[in-house]
Design a binder for these strands. Structure first.
Lengths: 198, 198, 198, 198
DNA sequence: ACGTAAGCGAGACGGTACGTCGAGTCTTGGT
DNA sequence: ACCAAGACTCGACGTACCGTCTCGCTTACGT
């Protein structure tokens, strides 16, 4: 959103309009599930707002939707299960669960659908980043407690897990989020190299 | 594409039109990089073809683009490097490399941006499937040679690797595709659990 | 209207659309009476036509309205009353009568309201010209029969009469069109110079 | 303009704003030449004034423009040439000359383009009336001096002359204003009826 | 001198219409 | 039955103004 810096002359922008627009956008994104089928006109109508009021704040549809999605920030689960594995499973389970549902599909679409690459970055920052950060914490704690193998690159681990969740949830189809998460975490924990015959 | 079943009366459809349409579609997808900015009208114009000729073959823009993308099928690298690790790195390196470039970004967009879920499935089948299959072969061979730990679920391994590549390439930014692939493969091979103090 | 010259490839323009648009435009012009309150959108809606179909034919609202008005061409009264004065009165009476009524006010507005001067010219040609021509005929016949003073410039006479009708009808307000026409014609016939004391 | 009646509490309205608004309005009317292309926003911007300051004074665009035009009141030529014909020609010449120029065309547009008939009346009163009054004076003096034929209706004469000028200047195109005025005046003076063969 | 009430520039507000673009369909004459 | 061309209806786009409504700030009067 284009936030005017500091106090400016003229009537200030309406907070109520902000809220109405963002929540109308989310409503419609959830209903239609497809970014292309959510029109600015529909958002304006549902928010009870003129189109100009939207264009005064955002340059286009995508930017608006990104901001709308960013307001979601679903709460992360409470961690501290005692073990690194437990926490990893818990987080990944939520990521898997979030893959279902229309709104989430729309968000995924926003993640990659961009001409202007900065948009993907913004939503990544707003939505993905908190999850990555939580995973990162867990890994760091695992390193402290000795549960994480020294030498494992946390960044790589993180991406393997989240990317794995992203794809596995789609390709392997059914199954509970829990089972999916456990399979991925355990596979990664154990590694896939055959143990050297000692 | 809607292929007319069997022989039919009247003038047969022009193969030249097929080709012109598909390659015009790919051109534009590469130029614009964004599915929303590629219009059927532009495709028809560039292909020197009437719009009806397109709609006679495909029901809509997305289906056409999916088919166009499916014609790409970039060749997979020759494998058989002698070791499972070598082959995995080789394949993943190519996946990483393909993440760059406008066309590929557009393809990625197509992968998730869908209202109608079947489209995602089709393109997945056409583009992703060959890579998955190749990875799958490598894993199977690894199982035979004993390089792959027994008990590792190939499906999970596959998704961890490809998903990891997808995300790591974006989040970790720079670096050669080769280095990226090696890091991911080695991390997964070794696992992340600290070795039990035997 | 932008008439495509000769036969052209592609689907020809719909005559039904032409008619629907023009008559919808006239309807609305009559109802609203003010060019500014007739919107292209309303015309398109009433004609059951897309906006693009209008813009394909006319560059803007004014041009469309001009063409619409031009289709009116209300029939001129039958003349040949036997005398030049009678015919002049008859014609001027109709001009006076036409000054009343919403549609006519709208037409008058079009006559002068132009940024692009060609528009005024077009409507003048389409609507005013026939009346001028009829008056001109009467004057010419008057010259032949000797009823018109030799040396009177027909062009000047014509403008005096029609302009007089235009203004008198407005300024002098009430009165029947007939009376108005007779007053003007008789005043002009007799002249306003005092007769020279022979 | 809506003048607040009598003294009122609070800050009095700014005279400078009045002036700035009216002159900005005239500027733009002259530049654009078309009432529809002069926007209140543009007037406010050019006058360095808030829109509310305009709407506090006038109910709408048309009323403002009418008032703006009314401030013009171009000076009438000095008369008393000695003869009625001379004075008529002098006045009509000015009317003809005023027909040229963008501003004048815009004013003419205002004269007839009205939904609300009172607007036309107001501008008529402000701009046309002085000219009509001057003509009227000349005719009255002509009646006294015997130059004007007794029985000629001054109202009709007036409208014939001014309306004639209005139309003739447009239809007959070129020529000096002087020549145009003389032709019309002389035609009307002499009448158009053939002299009765005494 | 000071409060109060209206005016001020600025600009956001809900709307309406603009003129353009593209979607997917239909209609020509010609292959 | 196909083809290129292009018109068709429809709906969204992003812009421009409309007339109204806050904002924080003068500016003049009446106390």
């Amino acid at each position: 959103m284009q936030t005017p810096p500091g106090r400016r002359p003229g009537r200030p922008r309406s907070r109520r309009a902000d809220d109405a627009i963002l929540s109308a956008a989310l409503d419609l994104l959830g209903e239609r599930g497809n970014i292309a089928e959510v029109s600015i006109e529909a958002i304006a109508a549902r928010a009870g707002v003129g189109k100009a009021t939207i264009y005064r704040r955002w340059p286009g549809k995508e930017e608006l939707l990104v901001d709308a999605v960013a307001t979601l920030r679903p709460p992360l689960p409470d961690l501290d299960e005692g073990s690194m594995r437990g926490d990893l499973v818990l987080l990944l389970e939520q990521v898997c669960a979030e893959m279902d549902g229309k709104l989430q599909r729309a968000i995924n679409a926003l993640l990659v659908s961009r001409a202007h690459p900065e948009i993907g970055a913004r939503i990544k920052h707003a939505v993905l980043a908190p999850r990555r950060e939580a995973l990162y914490q867990v890994l760091r704690r695992g390193a402290e407690t000795g549960e994480l193998r020294p030498g494992a690159d946390p960044e790589a681990v993180l991406n393997l897990l989240m990317g794995g969740a992203l794809l596995h949830r789609r390709s392997a189809g059914g199954g509970s989020p829990r089972a999916c998460a456990e399979l991925l975490v355990d596979t990664l924990l154990a590694g896939i190299a055959a143990p050297r015959p000692a």
